[in-house]
Design a binder for these strands. Sequence first.
DNA 1: AATATTTTTTAGATTAATCTAAAAATAGTA
DNA 2: TACTATTTTTAGATTAATCTAAAAAATATT
Lengths: 223, 223
Amino acid sequence: MNPISKAEENHLKAIFTLCEESDKPASTNAIAKIMKTKAASVTAMIIRLSGKEPSLVNHQKHKGVRLTKAGKKLATNLIRKHRLWETFLVEKLNFSWDEVHDIAEELEHIKAEKLIDRLDEFLGRPKFDPHGDPIPDAEGNFTYRKQILLTELVKNQAAVVVGVLDDSPSFLQYLNKLNLVLGAKVQVLERVDYDGSNRILLNDQQEQILTNKVCQNLYVKTL
Amino acid sequence: MNPISKAEENHLKAIFTLCEESDKPASTNAIAKIMKTKAASVTAMIIRLSGKEPSLVNHQKHKGVRLTKAGKKLATNLIRKHRLWETFLVEKLNFSWDEVHDIAEELEHIKAEKLIDRLDEFLGRPKFDPHGDPIPDAEGNFTYRKQILLTELVKNQAAVVVGVLDDSPSFLQYLNKLNLVLGAKVQVLERVDYDGSNRILLNDQQEQILTNKVCQNLYVKTL
DNA sequence: AATATTTTTTAGATTAATCTAAAAATAGTA
DNA sequence: TACTATTTTTAGATTAATCTAAAAAATATT
Ligand SMILES: [Mn+2]
Ligand SMILES: [Mn+2]
Ligand SMILES: [Mn+2]
Ligand SMILES: [Mn+2]
């Protein structure tokens, strides 16, 4: 069967993400939520994906769906493209990290291996995208990095911001305002029991109060 | 009606090109040939385009089709995007001019005004694409340039290569081999009546024989 | 002008990707 | 365990974009 369609690719990516984060098969409803479609549409798509040659998903009725090796390969390549384009938009076209997701969501479907190879090279083979997420290489290998949420950082231990868990535009814009960009140095000075808020030292200069919600969505790496 | 689709955009562009080059309404068959579809499909598409609000084409049965003002605007913007992406691919990603068309054919459909503005800026607001074709500005204005085919150049008059009429990969690759790239200096030393071939001087150094067919598809501008 | 050829349109079908509504299966709870 | 609620699948429709075959209109040729 023909070249893979945009809808098919987006479904594969949704399934990949869901299976990665829970280690369980992806449920029809969860996929529909990501795809902003209905469960019935997802069921139809799953049937189509599993009927491909080679099959892209394994699926037993009512038991959820997982990617096959072939499906995983396609999904990984899509994520590679998505993150490289995001990096291009931020690094070369001066977009800010909260603006790039939707555009990359379209660019990722351009089919030309050579284009991605060249883009990767042009960008200097980056290992992480503007949100701190790892960019798989052409073979599909992700760079693993020991990172923890800011809520898990021990008091007074110095660390740098390396990524976000929530990459919604509103959160990213808020982080911009707080100067909590990738590479910023942070240290937790105090954790307030009363409301879970955290007093932090930013870049060795500035004291700041962060809510628990912010800290739960910010990845840091200790120095 | 909804955002314009890729198929609709490609049809508009085909109609624009046909009307530009002949100054007559575009025929169903000619459009089908460019789109690599069948006449019946084109008829259906024309009906859809003319039914849009605002209408994108004017059409009377059996009399061909022309773009409306709105249609022309969309087509021009699409050409702008196509040529900017081609320029990006050649200038930044080191593709050669014969490789970029098909990739740009996909990239042109990414919908994000800001992306194109930024890309244009990143490229230094180029006026011509890698094939010498003018890139319309954001308002849709093309830069006009007095250019002639190499067949029309008077003998011994110096000129530079500024574009191609035929931009097929095979022709472009052949030109690469002959070193007849954009900016090359040419002078016609002799026109051979026998076979219509032309003896030219390239970059003030090298003598070369060019067939009439090559000269008919190469634009130059006198110095 | 009559006829033949070519072009365009219409009619009817197909496929991908979605939907809604209803049925069936699974999971949660008293 | 039996009932209820949730999730998933099936059935049937819809829309965009294409196709083939046939009819109709325009054009070209005796
Ligand atoms: Mn996408
Ligand atoms: Mn990202
Ligand atoms: Mn296109
Ligand atoms: Mn071009």
